[in-house]
């Protein structure tokens, strides 16, 4: 299995591996009670391809949904812990105690939570990416249907004109 330059054809090897893995995964999921539609290997491959694009190829910092939510302060996880106080006189002392005494004491808990919040943020972004990929697929299908309709109408109109 060599390419034109006589080297091993890595693209073909990887396609074979990916096909084998897809088949194995489909069987496993069906055995666990996945949707019946997955019995159709072609449908499963299309679904996997759409989700792979979301997981592997999308830049999670270049997504549409966060842009649309821009005006909403409450949708995004706030990761860094910010210390603020509205008290004019005692504010400085409170901040000092929080920053220099309480935070070092609670550091282990803070780090643990932060790491999990980071993971949650990533999951959120992956979900946004998946939804966006589905919306893209939907948009392309709509375009195709519209073109087919226009083509069909044009074809019918053309036939009527010739008649």
């Amino acid at each position: 299995m060599a390419d034109q330059a006589g080297r091993p054809n890595v693209a073909r090897l990887m396609r074979e591996i990916e096909d084998q893995v897809r088949q194995q995964r489909r069987t496993r999921l069906l055995a666990r009670g996945a949707p019946d539609e997955y019995r159709d290997a072609e449908i499963f491959a299309i679904v996997e391809d759409v989700l792979h694009r979301a997981v592997d190829q999308r830049d999670l910092e270049a997504l549409l949904i966060p842009e649309l939510l821009d005006a909403d302060e409450d949708w995004e996880l706030q990761l860094p812990l910010r210390f603020e106080s509205h008290r004019r006189t005692t504010g400085g002392l409170i901040l000092f105690v929080k920053k220099r005494i309480l935070r070092p004491l609670m550091h282990w808990l803070y780090e643990y939570s932060l790491e999990n919040f980071r993971r949650q943020r990533r999951v959120n972004r992956l979900l946004f990416a998946s939804i966006e990929e589905l919306a893209l697929e939907n948009a392309k299908l709509k375009q195709d249907i519209a073109e087919l309709k226009d083509g069909g109408i044009a074809e019918r109109t053309g036939r009527q004109g010739h008649a």
């Binding site: 080297r7 091993p8 890595v10 090897l13 990887m14 591996i17 990916e18 893995v21 194995q24």
Partner: peptide, 16 residues
């Protein structure tokens, strides 16, 4: 380089 294989998940890791 056509010098190996690659994986994205456990199943592909094992196959590779």
């Amino acid at each position: 380089a056509a010098g190996g294989l690659y994986y994205r998940n456990y199943d592909e890791f094992v196959r590779g």
